[in-house]
C-alpha cells in the first residue's frame, strides 16, 4: 500500500490524461459530420453537393429538341460531330429561358481557331492560311457554318 501512496501523484497524472482522452472523444462524437464514413473516409454528403453544381453547357441533345432544323442541316455535313456549344458557347441559360438571346459567335475568331494552318495539327484535318485563302473576306461569305461544304449550297 505504501507504493500506492507514494505513486499517488502518478495516478493523478493518469487521471488528467484519462480526462483529456474522454473529452477528446466527446468532442469528436459531437464535431464529426453525420455523413462522414457513409461511403468511405470522407463526408458522404459532399458527393451530392458537388453533383448539385450548376450546369452551364446545356448539351447538344437539349439544343436539338428545339433547333431540330439546324440539327438536320448539320448532320448532313462535315460539322456533324461538332456540338452546338463548341462554337456557340455555354447556353444553359438560354435553354432554361429561350427569351435570353444567345448572341452570334464571332466568325473572325471562331473559324481560324480550328482551321488556321499549322504543322502541329493532324495532316488530314482541313486547314488554311486564312489571309491567302480568303484575303480577309469573312468565312461565312462562302461557307455556311452548319454545313460548310460550298457545293452543298452554303454560298449566300
Amino acid at each position: 500500500m505504501k507504493l500506492f501512496k507514494d505513486a499517488g501523484h502518478l495516478f493523478r497524472l493518469a487521471g488528467v490524461f484519462l480526462l483529456g482522452t474522454l473529452s477528446f472523444l466527446a468532442i469528436r462524437a459531437f464535431v464529426v459530420p453525420h455523413s462522414f464514413g457513409q461511403y468511405g473516409h470522407y463526408r458522404g454528403a459532399a458527393i451530392a453537393e458537388i453533383a448539385a453544381h450548376p450546369v452551364h453547357f446545356a448539351g447538344h441533345q437539349t439544343c436539338e429538341t428545339c433547333h431540330s432544323d439546324i440539327a438536320q442541316t448539320k448532320s448532313a455535313g462535315k460539322h456533324a460531330q461538332v456540338n452546338c456549344e463548341a462554337c456557340h458557347g455555354p447556353l444553359a441559360k438560354h435553354a432554361d429561358d429561350p427569351s435570353i438571346d444567345p448572341g452570334k459567335p464571332d466568325v473572325a475568331v471562331l473559324c481560324v481557331r480550328c482551321h488556321s494552318a499549322s504543322a502541329a495539327r493532324p495532316k488530314d484535318f482541313p486547314q488554311v492560311d486564312a489571309d491567302q485563302h480568303s484575303g480577309g473576306i469573312p468565312c461565312t461569305t462562302c461557307h455556311q457554318p452548319h454545313n460548310p461544304v460550298i457545293a452543298a449550297g452554303g454560298a449566300k
Partner: peptide
C-alpha cells in the same frame, strides 16, 4: 477536375467533351 461530376450524374457528358469539335 471533377470530371464534371454535376453533369455526368445527370446523363450529360463533360463540358470539355461537349465542346471538343473533333471528338
Amino acid at each position: 477536375c471533377t470530371l464534371c461530376y454535376h453533369r455526368i450524374t445527370k446523363g450529360l457528358t463533360t463540358a470539355c467533351c461537349e465542346a471538343c469539335p473533333t471528338g
